[in-house]
Simulated scan of single mutants.
Amino acid sequence: MIIEDRAQSYEEALRRSGIRITRQRAALLRILADTDDHPDATALHARATAAGAGVSLATVYRTLAELEAQGLIHKVEFVGEPARYEPADQRHHDHMIDVETGQVVEFFNERIEKLQAEIAAEMGYEILRHRLELYVRKLP
């Protein structure tokens, strides 16, 4: 989904919930729609502030909570890190978290997906959804 379409869908979702789209909130939604990393609320607040949108941190949290409730963003919580957010319209992927830098790397591996499905089936289950997080550090 392109950035403008994503930002528009965020605005429409908030309007349906009765949330006013102020200039500040619209700027925040555009920043959120344009992100290609996994920002936390504080990082989004800092980006909005740097862009000149005087949005409060409380507004950032309320906006994120509503977008998550409507299924437009996913809240991802990595061990020892504040909650981060990513668009829900992305195809399935897993995460590697660099424990030294905090960088989050998205990846998809068909062999891992197949193996997980095989293991679940061998045990009499089917996978409905899953998350795979690898906590890593760069090799010397």
Rank of each mutant, 00 (worst) to 15 (best):
G71P: 14
G71V: 12
L72N: 12
L72C: 12
I73P: 11
I73V: 15
I73C: 10
H74P: 00
H74W: 15
H74Q: 13
H74E: 13
K75L: 13
K75E: 15
K75Y: 00
V76M: 04
V76S: 04
E77N: 04
E77L: 07
F78L: 08
V79S: 07
G80P: 05
G80W: 02
G80A: 06
P82C: 02
P82W: 05
P82K: 07
P82F: 05
P82H: 05
A83N: 04
R84L: 02
Y85T: 01
Y85W: 15
E86P: 00
P87R: 01
D89I: 06
D89L: 08
Q90S: 04
Q90R: 13
R91D: 13
R91E: 13
H92T: 08
H92R: 14
H92W: 14
H93M: 11
H93A: 13
H93N: 05
H93P: 06
D94H: 15
D94E: 15
D94I: 00
H95A: 02
H95R: 09
H95G: 03
M96W: 08
M96I: 09
M96Y: 08
I97H: 06
V99C: 12
V99P: 09
G102W: 04
G102M: 05
G102V: 04
V104D: 00
V105A: 11
E106V: 09
F108E: 10
F108S: 15
N109K: 12
N109R: 14
N109A: 12
E110L: 10
E110N: 02
E110G: 00
E110H: 13
